[in-house]
Amino acid sequence: HFLDTIKIIAYRAESAMVNIVREFLPKPDQARAFLRALYATEADLLPDYLNKTLTVRLHHSARAHTDEVIAKLCEELNATETFFPRSEFRLIFKLGSS
């Protein structure tokens, strides 16, 4: 039951992100495929102990339009002001060196 609960939570989180990126994609039905590709993208984790933030810096994609969608998703995720579990670090999502 525990694993099923984790799967449900993950699916709901992914569905929320699908709803965000769907409006920025030319084919809204490709939102889940877009996110699967994003999950496989490399990222840098940059803790800032002074400001108590953890920046997740995603690497740029090969296409400019994809970068625009990722940047919009980062804006939406940053607006939630989510904290990294069991810490005082607020998560900040950004694309590349922007």
Results as ranks from 00 to 15, higher is better:
residue 38 L to T: 06
residue 1 H to Y: 01
residue 10 A to Q: 14
residue 54 L to M: 15
residue 35 L to R: 06
residue 98 S to Y: 11
residue 92 I to F: 04
residue 15 S to M: 14
residue 48 D to R: 10
residue 80 T to F: 06
residue 39 Y to K: 14
residue 92 I to W: 03
residue 54 L to W: 12
residue 21 V to K: 07
residue 37 A to E: 13
residue 17 M to H: 08
residue 27 K to V: 06
residue 16 A to N: 09
residue 55 T to V: 15
residue 42 E to L: 05
residue 47 P to D: 09
residue 73 L to C: 02
residue 55 T to E: 14
residue 14 E to H: 11
residue 30 Q to D: 09
residue 52 K to F: 04
residue 26 P to C: 02
residue 40 A to D: 13
residue 52 K to C: 09
residue 82 T to C: 05
residue 60 H to A: 12
residue 30 Q to K: 15
residue 58 L to F: 15
residue 58 L to T: 04
residue 73 L to A: 02
residue 19 N to H: 14
residue 42 E to Q: 12
residue 62 A to P: 00
residue 20 I to Q: 01
residue 64 A to W: 03
residue 53 T to R: 11
residue 47 P to N: 09
residue 95 L to D: 01
residue 98 S to V: 04
residue 72 K to D: 01
residue 31 A to Q: 03
residue 1 H to R: 05
residue 53 T to C: 04
residue 8 I to A: 14
residue 55 T to P: 07
residue 98 S to I: 03
residue 35 L to T: 03
residue 88 E to L: 07
residue 61 S to K: 05
residue 6 I to D: 01
residue 56 V to H: 10
residue 34 F to Y: 13
residue 27 K to C: 01
residue 44 D to S: 14
residue 28 P to W: 04
residue 79 A to G: 02
residue 28 P to D: 07
residue 47 P to E: 11
residue 11 Y to V: 01
residue 60 H to E: 10
residue 42 E to W: 02
residue 52 K to D: 06
residue 64 A to E: 14
residue 31 A to N: 03
residue 89 F to E: 08
residue 36 R to C: 08
residue 37 A to P: 00
residue 77 L to P: 03
residue 8 I to N: 04
residue 33 A to L: 09
residue 53 T to Q: 15
residue 38 L to R: 11
residue 84 F to Y: 15
residue 93 F to W: 15
residue 40 A to N: 10
residue 9 I to P: 00
residue 92 I to C: 08
residue 39 Y to V: 03
residue 15 S to Y: 11
residue 47 P to K: 05
residue 93 F to G: 05
residue 29 D to R: 13
residue 72 K to H: 12
residue 7 K to M: 01
residue 55 T to I: 15
residue 57 R to L: 08
residue 36 R to I: 05
residue 66 T to F: 00
residue 90 R to V: 01
residue 1 H to M: 11
residue 96 G to M: 03
residue 3 L to G: 02
residue 94 K to R: 13
residue 5 T to M: 05
residue 4 D to Q: 07
residue 52 K to G: 00
residue 78 N to T: 01
residue 5 T to D: 08
residue 77 L to Q: 09
residue 16 A to D: 09
residue 64 A to L: 13
residue 35 L to V: 02
residue 60 H to K: 12
residue 81 E to N: 12
residue 64 A to K: 08
residue 38 L to V: 02
residue 84 F to G: 03
residue 75 E to K: 12
residue 19 N to V: 05
residue 23 E to Q: 13
residue 78 N to R: 00
residue 37 A to T: 13
residue 68 E to C: 00
